[in-house]
Design a protein around this nucleic acid. Structure first.
Length: 565
RNA sequence: UGCUCAAUGGUGUAAUGGUAGCACUACAGAUUCUGGUUCUGUCUGUCUGGGUUCGAGUCCUGGUUGAGCAACCA
């Protein structure tokens, strides 16, 4: 398994698992679960959890099941169930079973009845505000509800009435009777069940009028399924004693699932909250859950991040119990590292100016260029050449200087990518002094790949033939937020959005990209990614908006640029 | 005046009582038919006081700082 790879230290969860294995816990059985609530799209923070949950199972010959934590019909929807399944699949993970917390509603209901009968639960008729008020504060003990010592029969009858739909939403809840003075707030008679009749459940419809809360559903579900390692994020640390307590009340064997917590993922210049993402989507501040600026899996995918790159990123950041903040730069570095190996190179001119090769007499010449220099196995493409080309405006300066390696009249010799060496001779300008045409002479003996072409030039510039290029829309994306940590700022997070997070421009690209002018193939509900590197510009991916009439690219990441102006 | 968790360069992470290492970033240089890539080098770190030990980033203890916990959310 480890052969060929350098030795890597285990993260602290893997260490726990290996210790459990060594001690023969659960007869060596490893079972994890990924438990998303279907109330939003998966984001890269979830991917960190997915890589952990599925990764542990994979590495230790266990199984990881997908379990939808669908205990709150007010917020949940099948739309999300489908997208979550697609995204996990696309990331390359395979679950054992698909479960739903709603599969256990009857079991959980029966368990609640048992709690009531054993005097461990009661129906409270106070309002949410009253319950909150008498819960106390972290530094002060709470006080008991006046309904706390209701007789068992009455609790049974009322809980039944709650489920029968006889009680209005919010009028009653079922609470565990534990300890109103416990220093852990979660032990102060936590709510086990609430009434929800306003929304049908996406799977059970109107069968249930009462729904279990997270604390009464999650651990039990783990127990019912035989989960051994229930891995979640740090905010659940304080829930763990309650997780254990509930299971201890009814477990009939020594088997126990154990909860372990790791640090959630935070990345600079973005938010990782489903609530905030939903708001951005609903208010049209982004184009949808799959807007390429979003940290969602579908957003990153549309942006051009491969599953491999996303997983490599998660691999780099590791798992600890320290709450931190990852540089967006690391994510970008990872995607460049991935794409540089495989993305075909192509010329795209964003701010074109015409270049005329005054001594060029040829016609119909075609340059054959490698898709990636030095990797002939990745194929070649044809670049029609001609007397009139478009080059990047910034590649010409009328007054060059020693720090400018590109075209200037009487200046350096410059290589046209994969073609000839040229030297600028002059330019035309309009009334505003703006360059309209650049003139140059070419050296017919200097074609790339020929003996005469071995001469070195300080720089190489991109070009497309005027009469053989096509136009494409390029969507240039940048960070979604203008501040490093939007969540730490006071006030409305929407005011922190980066106003320059998207620029839509038109560029001229090589004719070779004509083959992309068709609807993108879709597999398993997911559009294929056709990656390119626009030389010197960045990595781009064909957007699903592309049609046979219009070519659309999203910029995945720019190239690093060490040339400061 | 609570409970819980944490603290290693700018960032992330390793060292599991025995030489503080790796990656990203930044900066220099070399290479390059992408001012990209690649390669080399440089800068920067164990929160703090005490203790245990031949030896402490690691163990113990006091403090400091940060995070989480008072949803009929998960």
């Amino acid at each position: 398994m480890e052969t060929g790879k350098e030795e890597r230290s285990l993260n602290f969860i893997e260490q726990i698992v290996e210790k459990d294995l060594a001690e023969g816990k659960n007869n060596g059985r490893i079972q994890t679960r990924f438990p998303p609530e279907p109330n939003g799209y998966l984001h890269i923070g979830h991917v960190k959890a997915i890589c952990m949950d599925f990764g542990i199972a994979e590495k230790y010959n266990g199984v990881c099941n997908l379990r939808f934590d669908d205990t709150n019909p007010v917020k949940e929807d099948v739309e999300y169930v489908d997208s979550i399944r697609n995204d996990i699949h696309w990331l390359g993970f395979r679950w054992g079973q698909i479960y739903y917390a709603s599969d256990y509603f009857q079991q959980l209901y029966d368990l609640a009845i048992r709690f009531i009968k054993e005097g461990k639960a009661y129906v409270d008729e106070q309002t949410a505000e009253q319950i909150a008020a008498q819960k106390g504060t972290p530094t002060e003990a709470g006080v008991a509800s006046p309904y706390r010592d209701r007789p068992v029969e009455e609790n049974l009858r009322l809980f039944q009435a709650m489920q029968n739909g006889e009680i209005e939403d919010g009028r009653m809840v079922l609470r565990a009777k534990i300890d109103m003075a416990n220093p852990n707030m979660h032990f102060r008679d936590p709510i086990m069940y609430r009434i929800i009749t306003t929304h049908p459940h996406h799977r059970t419809g109107r069968t249930w009028n009462v729904y279990p809360m997270y604390d009464f559903a999650h651990g039990q579900s783990d127990y019912f399924e035989g989960v051994t390692h229930s891995i979640c994020t740090l905010e659940f640390v304080v829930h763990r004693p309650l997780y254990d307590w509930f299971i201890d009340q009814f477990a009939d064997s020594d088997y126990r699932p154990h909860q372990y917590e790791f640090n959630r993922l935070n990345i600079t210049y973005t938010v990782m909250s489903k609530r905030k993402m939903l708001q951005l989507v609903k208010e049209g501040l982004v184009a949808g859950w799959d807007d390429p600026r979003m940290p969602t899996v579908c957003g990153l995918r549309r942006r051009g991040y491969s599953a491999r790159a996303i997983r490599a990123f998660i691999d780099k950041i590791g798992y600890t119990k320290v709450e931190g903040m990852i540089d967006l730069g690391l994510l970008e570095h990872t995607v460049r590292e991935d794409l540089k190996e495989t993305a075909p190179r192509v010329c795209a001119i964003f701010d074109p100016v015409k270049l005329v090769l005054t001594n060029y007499e040829g016609a119909g010449e075609t340059i054959v260029a490698e898709n990636i220099d030095g990797k002939p196995e990745l194929g070649t493409r044809e670049m029609p050449f001609g007397r009139e080309l478009y080059i990047e405006r910034g590649d010409f300066q009328e007054e060059g200087d020693k720090n400018f390696y590109r075209l200037s009249p009487g200046g350096r010799e410059v290589r046209l990518k994969a073609a000839y060496i040229i030297q600028a001779t002059g330019c035309d300008k309009d009334a505003d002094g703006r360059v309209t045409t650049v003139y140059a002479t070419y050296d017919p003996q200097s074609k790339s790949g020929t003996e005469g072409g071995n001469r070195k030039t300080k720089s190489t510039i991109n070009w497309v033939a005027c009469d053989a290029c096509i136009e494409a829309e390029a969507r240039l994306y940048d960070r979604l937020f203008a501040v490093e940590n939007p969540s730490a700022e006071e006030g409305d997070f929407r005011e922190l959005l980066n106003p320059d997070s998207l620029h839509v421009v038109t560029c001229k690209v090589e004719q070779a990209l004509k083959k992309e002018m068709q609807p993108l193939p879709v597999n398993d509900g997911v559009a294929e990614q056709h990656h390119y590197q626009f030389l010197k510009q960045g990595y781009f991916v064909v957007d699903p908006d592309t049609t046979s009439d219009k070519l659309v690219f999203n910029r995945t990441a720019s190239l690093k640029d060490n040339w400061q102006k």
